[in-house]
Nucleic acid binder design. Structure first.
Lengths: 209, 209
DNA sequence: ATGTTTTTATGCGATGCTGTACAAAAATCC
DNA sequence: GGATTTTTGTACAGCATCGCATAAAAACAT
């Protein structure tokens, strides 16, 4: 069934051998779910492979051992979350409105059915910090990136005379990031979404005040 | 070497059989250390027994299986922490000063050598929440008790005209408890104590403002 | 002293988990 | 079409872990 009109396709660049039967992003998403449910230490490779829809050797070949697989999932999750944060913070409306949207979106994710899982970084990466320095380092880096994103946004709001100089954008960013930590933790241990949203809503004016 | 003067000793009440060779509090403390290092899922009963200085069957006989052992350690840790919190908050000085003392003490504990371990509740109990409802429930209860302790203190400060009516003591308590969460998480992933203390110090006036 | 009760200590069976080896399958290159 | 390359699926060896069974030890009771 070869088409004779050989269009210059965007170089598909099929590597060489048998093609993979899975999509990397989807595997990392499914694997992340398992890690969020059971934690890093509590998740077995059998569960991970089954959730990913492939078998252990394929997982090992594609991502390495369990720690490396987790790091891949963590990086992927962090980047996606960061992109979402930037999108919301870069949107329209007052700084208070955008901050509120960030927290509502975060709480929706943290408490999404079928069960609240909180945040991968705060809820599962932090536990492993004492025993897995690389996980600790990546978690640390990601939280920093979140705060930098907040800080840049607050700095712009100050420049636009929407916020006062004090507290500094950095200080406000620390408060904003800190609030995300708490929401993630409390969501995971079962605090109701409505309660979390009420708390977040009460904190937004404090951060922007 | 029996003393003839048979003083009415506080009824030692030796139960009946062979006496235990360990002290419950000390075992729970040592076990807690292991749980804080490795997490609940990551800690093996061999490690726990060795750290406790006794063998597995004794652990099982005294506390039950791993989850029950963890729950014992968690309750013990929570009660001790709560007592420490009450002591500091019930002490002398302005509300700001006492709050500052709370955070400094917490950060010292969270970052104590040989390595930062954060808080048992936030750092290890939260992870297990989706898979161990009883752990989640106890963690939830403990965080509530912390907040109630804060709230009572703020209410007293309001009654003493040291704080304004708004934000409410409950709202201030949520902020105060939330800050502890963040400090515990960040300590565990390696943020330096000095940085944590600076952040906490900057938040105290915000909570008391 | 003998018996009873409770804790200790050793050891074991069963299960689960990790990581890899090996052959079949599916694609490209020549 | 045949060779090559990479992925897939099954199977397996090795090890760790959990929970308990069983016997010895250390106390009290009579």
């Amino acid at each position: 069934m070869r088409d004779s009109t050989k269009i210059v396709e965007p170089p598909p660049k099929r590597p060489r051998g048998r093609p993979r039967s899975f999509d990397t992003s989807e595997v990392l998403d499914r694997v992340r779910m398992v890690f969020m449910d059971k934690g890093f230490a509590g998740a077995s490779l059998d569960e991970l492979a089954e959730a990913a829809g492939l078998n252990r050797p394929s997982l090992y070949a594609a991502f390495g051992d369990k720690e490396q697989l987790y790091l891949h999932a963590l990086r992927f999750y962090g980047d996606k979350s960061l992109a979402g944060l930037e999108t919301i913070l870069g949107g329209k409306g007052s700084i208070e409105r955008r901050l509120g949207q960030v927290y509502n979106a975060a709480i929706d994710l943290y408490t999404a059915p079928p069960r609240p899982r909180g945040c991968l970084i705060v809820g599962t990466a932090a536990v492993e910090a004492p025993t897995h320095p690389r996980i600790a380092a990546m978690a640390h880096t990601l939280l920093l990136e979140f705060e930098q994103c907040f800080e840049a946004t607050f700095a712009k709001a100050v420049a636009a005379r929407e916020l006062g100089r004090s507290p500094s954008p950095a200080a406000r960013a620390r408060m904003a990031g800190s609030l995300l930590d708490t929401l993630a933790i409390r969501a995971r241990i079962g605090v109701a979404p409505a309660e979390l949203k009420a708390f977040a809503a009460s904190m937004v004016p404090a951060i922007c005040g």
